[in-house]
Design a protein around this nucleic acid. Structure first.
Length: 293
DNA sequence: CGTGGGCCTGTCTA
DNA sequence: ATAGACAGGCCCA
């Protein structure tokens, strides 16, 4: 299909660290979405795909989000405008909440290549194999599969201390038949509190799940990188005491997390999540190369 | 309510 | 090459 003026940068979108189970082979991106393997490729204004219909692709890549409007809304200063310009076409895609939740529980205290490996191992062992072209792809394990997985199995997937969180959260979701999708109808704050009740889910993980899979574009996850961005470019907009304290310390307490989170949401507004993702990725590409194949 | 330390293990860096 | 630091944090004392 022709994008017809709708801005999209597929490569940046799929390798900026918001989603972990896409692989590029011969200029096609292969992934599993909605239980089936699909492939996507962008050639300038042309977006090609196979094994999926147009409506599905448009929704998954959030092509109905008006990037121009969002850019105007969050473009409050030189730095963010530079990031927007540099990474123009990056979109926040609409992931499956279940996969997103487990992914970010696993993502704590890991770098992106390691996260991809864990999720690949999990899918290989507990998902179902599907074939597309010459690619073997695996669906993401269901809550039932992970709820019944043994600790030993999960450890062999490299989860380490995250194994018990995945186990507990999967059990709760499976046994109570919890519908993560229902959190879409709930306010950002209430949904965040609900998510934080799951094992292995704190403020940061909850914000990621809300932003990347539950349509809360105002969510503003604060990780080490975003903390760095704020310190390097927005410190003057914070209370001086807070900025000094953050410069001294290594990690974020919940209270300080919330302060930075509120700053982001108030400063950038209802699309703070987009600002976060541009700033996050921009900070990374400035200091290293894209950590993707 | 705020703070500090521990944590599995794969990557990255020197 | 090999050790040591660090990683898209969370939990518990």
């Amino acid at each position: 299909m022709n994008l017809d003026g709708v801005p999209l940068n597929l490569d940046v979108t799929l390798c900026c660290g918001q989603v972990f189970r896409w692989d590029k082979k011969r200029d096609w991106w292969y992934g599993v979405v909605g239980g089936k393997a699909i492939k996507v490729r962008q050639v300038n204004a042309e977006l090609d795909f196979a094994n999926a219909d147009m409506k599905f692709v448009e929704n998954y890549f959030a092509l109905d989000d008006d990037l121009q409007k969002i850019s105007c809304a969050v473009g409050r200063d030189e730095h963010i405008r530079k990031a927007l310009q540099e990474l123009w076409g990056l979109r926040i895609i609409r992931q499956d909440p279940w996969e997103c939740l487990i992914s970010y529980i696993c993502a704590t205290y890991k770098n992106i290549p390691a996260i991809k490996h864990m999720l690949m191992h999990l899918s290989r062992r507990f998902g179902e194999k599907t074939i597309l072209d010459d690619m073997e792809l695996f669906t993401f394990p269901t809550p039932e599969k992970l709820a019944n997985a043994s600790t030993k199995d999960l450890l062999e997937c490299g989860l380490g201390y995250r194994a018990k969180y995945v186990q507990e959260t999967s059990k709760r979701i499976f046994e109570s038949d919890f519908e993560l999708e229902s959190l879409r109808q709930v306010s950002y704050m209430r949904a965040k509190k609900q998510l934080c009740n799951f094992a292995g889910v704190g403020l940061k993980v909850a914000d990621c799940v809300l932003l990347f899979s539950l349509g809360k574009t105002e969510a503003f996850p604060v990780d080490r990188w975003v903390e760095r961005v704020i310190l390097n470019h927005y410190a003057t907009k914070l209370p001086r005491e807070l900025a000094q304290k953050l410069a001294r310390r290594k990690g974020l307490s919940n209270a300080d997390y919330t302060k930075l989170n509120v700053f982001g949401r108030e400063y950038f507004g209802e699309y703070a999540g987009y600002a976060q993702e541009y700033l996050y990725h921009y900070e990374r590409v400035k200091t290293q190369t894209c950590s993707d194949a």
